[in-house]
Design a binder for these strands. Structure first.
Lengths: 186, 186, 186, 186
DNA sequence: GATGAATGAGCCTTCATTCAT
DNA sequence: TATGAATGAAGGCTCATTCAT
């Protein structure tokens, strides 16, 4: 007897994975990283079991979301963005995936550190030019840039969606770092 | 099926209240503000019911913890501390009660705003002198000081206890604000 | 050292008892007989302990409320009321203390049966006259009257306050028993 | 700390649902509709979570129990039962599911009213014939029949199982309505 | 490989009851 | 004797995780 009803079979694997990622993105942004995993599966239109197959634990899911962001960051860098653009992009990610930071912090060792290195590498590539252009404070190191990112992202966590962009702008200004928010960030 | 063992009577009231506060302090610092309330009661050696009598909801408990901190801050200010001292004190509070910020942010309306105002008032009283002494960046407003506090406190949330002091020091330096950590802050 | 603060001393005993009764009356009517005993104590302005001294358990309290009603019924009978008046009075009690019936039913043996006998005696005293006046169905016995009371009172339990009087009137009519609701019963 | 023992898988779904219904039936009858839901789950040999999946709240469960009864009533009507038979069936339901009435009364709006209408429709279909046969008092309307049902069912709530049948019979007689209890009703 | 139901641990909250003062 | 805080058992509900189909 064949599959009775709704069982798309293996073909759905890839489709499911990306639906889950997208759903996780949205749910984490709306309800924080403590949101029920079941709500992500539901939103993705996918069974609980499939969620577990693709992402064995909560952190995997968060890491995957972050990885997408880092990919995008690297792409922007390769496409010629400058430091303010890149900080703006990071800020957008922080605004949209608020809370994702929280969770990664807890399981840092493996995944997180690699991701962090990739971000640092991107920023490092623009460090010199930014210093020269006065877009960051004199004497600021790459680690300072990373610290700035962490400070800003962390603060956004505790703000309602509507206030995040303004909060980020004020924070970057206080840090003396130039940032160019992407179009459409509210 | 009520009382099973001893009933210390109302005499325990004050003792219980402070035991609960202390336990909350510790538990929130260790496990964040989402920690089980039952763990706080247990750690305080107090019944669940008593916890609820003293603090009808999670936010009451958090607010009480913060209030203690603000009291201490005002006392320090009255005792002649300068801005770096006060930022140092705030930093100690942030290090020890990490996570408390989280919860207050969500229920901001009443309690939090008042507490926030009290902190702002304390910092405002030292703003002029700090500017004159070059302890904060030129042009920094009182709101900038508050933003600095928020950025630093927020970042500590995601750090294991052992790294917090160092993280705070680096952050304050990046912000260009002088801070004098109290003795014994690890 | 004398009593520190609010401790009226033994003088309050009688006062407390009646305050508790009144509060119980009101609370049972509003929230049913399952209402927290603490809410009764609070409403009476009396400590929990005192409530327990006067009424060692929930049923005692209910029984006391009912006893008041029966007293009033006997008084009305002695004052010359006829059966429809008395049924009306019983109905008022049922409307106001809805739910009291429920609880008595569970602990019937002692208290309840005695109370029940007193009601039956009152109705019996008017049975003949009521039959003669056609106020009850031909052939109705005193036990039938009691059954009627039970049916009506039971049905009111499940009705919101506003509908009870109308419900009672319909029910008595269906039972073929004349009833004269007291003034002011809504 | 999730599943500890066996997980029968979805195959158990239907089995669980009916086990829950049956358990609810029994528990509500024995202990009233305020009985712990956990006791129902336990009796059904089903996890707490499954109970909540099948019946998200107490009322759902009660409604499902009542619905079964109404289904049976309609079936009996379709099968040629007359009014006394149907009242007898209703009486059996009331005897066995005592207390179910209570809960429905509180959440009347949606579900209950529909169920009530279905019962009324069944009785209405036999009203004429019953009047003609003298099985109900002259002039009794369908609403009077419904009121009778409510009075009888309500009274049974407060009686121990062993006395219910006799109580019902006396009540119906007092109401002047003929009732034929099904075989085996104790 | 997907599905979705089952499971039960665990947290929150309420409340009856006791008892030191 | 009154007071009111303390206590903890118990019930409601949620959710991470497993697993038969």
């Amino acid at each position: 007897m064949p599959t009775s009803r709704t069982n798309p079979g293996p073909a759905a694997a890839a489709r499911n994975r990306s639906a889950l990622l997208e759903a996780a993105h949205a749910v984490f942004a709306e309800s924080g990283t403590a949101a029920p995993l079941s709500s992500i599966a539901r939103r993705a239109g996918v069974g609980q079991g499939s969620l577990y197959r693709h992402f064995p634990d909560r952190v995997s899911l968060v890491a995957a979301v972050v990885e997408e962001n880092v990919d995008e960051l690297e792409a922007a860098s390769a496409a010629g963005a400058d430091l303010p653009d890149l900080l703006g992009l990071v800020t957008r990610h922080a605004i949209e995936s608020v809370g994702v930071v929280d969770l990664l912090a807890e399981d840092r060792p493996r995944r997180m550190l690699q991701l962090r290195e990739r971000v640092a590498a991107v920023l490092a590539a623009h460090h010199e030019a930014a210093l020269a252009a006065g877009q960051v404070p004199q004497g600021a190191t790459v680690e300072d840039l990373m610290l700035g990112v962490e400070l800003v992202a962390g603060a956004l966590t505790r703000r309602p969606a509507g206030e995040r962009a303004a909060m980020a702008v004020r924070s970057w200004r206080l840090l003396g770092m130039a940032v160019a928010l992407p179009e459409g960030v509210r």
